[in-house]
């Protein structure tokens, strides 16, 4: 957890870390990952162990509920447990679905960028591969084979294109809205020459360029909201 936050934050942030350590449940972590994934323009690292743990917890709880029903436990208690499971299930499903939507949108870009490809889970990679094949086949069958030779690529507009200019890429210059988890000191947010540091205190909400705060999201110091 290194932040370039400079002096004066030592004891404070250590205490903060301790507090998040003891008070953060997997439910909170899942909620945070869901929000970040929904608000970030690009696909983020797959939270494999968190998803695994959440799955196990849901399964465990479902077994508990079944047992309750068998033992004739108070229906109110059972329904509350069920509501809790449903809420967690919703978060998990929505998290996974948000990722699939991004994969569908940026599949060709993700495929050719090693760094992005490794962010996917095994199942997501499988899904991406199949989507890519299907999309390629579809484009070829419906349009590309009927075009003149130099326009047959599904990645390029024509053979003289220097880059893959038909590949949709996430806009990393997009602005996002984020909330700080703790005091971050001054943050250089402006990379276009001018120094323009921001003093960010815990709980502050800012609209910032995604690219400039990306590392802070990855280390969990900022949350997207």
């Amino acid at each position: 957890m290194e932040s370039g936050s400079g002096e004066g934050t030592g004891g404070f942030s250590a205490m903060d870390d301790y507090e998040t350590l003891i008070s953060t449940t997997d439910a909170d972590l899942l909620k945070r990952s869901w929000r970040n994934e929904k608000a970030a323009p690009e696909i983020l690292q797959f939270e494999s162990s968190l998803v695994q743990r959440s799955r196990e917890q849901i399964q465990l709880m479902e077994e508990t509920v079944e047992e309750f029903m068998k033992n004739g436990e108070d229906p109110l208690t059972v329904s509350l447990y069920q509501m809790d499971i449903d809420r967690t299930l919703f978060l998990l499903r929505s998290y996974l679905r948000t990722r699939l939507q991004k994969i569908e949108k940026f599949m060709f870009h993700i495929q050719k960028t090693a760094d992005l490809w490794t962010r996917l889970s095994r199942q997501e990679q499988k899904f991406a591969k199949r989507s890519i094949e299907d999309m390629k086949q579809h484009l070829e069958q419906s349009v590309l084979t009927k075009l003149p030779d130099r326009y047959k690529s599904h990645l390029k507009q024509s053979v003289i294109s220097e880059e893959d200019d038909m590949v949709m890429e996430p806009k990393l210059d997009a602005f996002v809205i984020c909330r700080t988890r703790k005091f971050l000191g001054s943050l250089p947010v402006d990379d276009s020459g001018e120094e323009n540091p921001l003093d960010m205190y815990a709980g502050d909400i800012y609209a910032l360029r995604y690219k400039s705060i990306k590392p802070l999201i990855e280390t969990g110091q900022l949350d997207l909201v």
Partner: peptide
């Protein structure tokens, strides 16, 4: 404006996003 401070509530942030 390279950064904008918006210490607002969740709904307000979402509306102006």
């Amino acid at each position: 404006t390279y950064a904008m401070k918006l210490n607002l509530s969740a709904m307000e942030v979402n509306v102006i996003r």
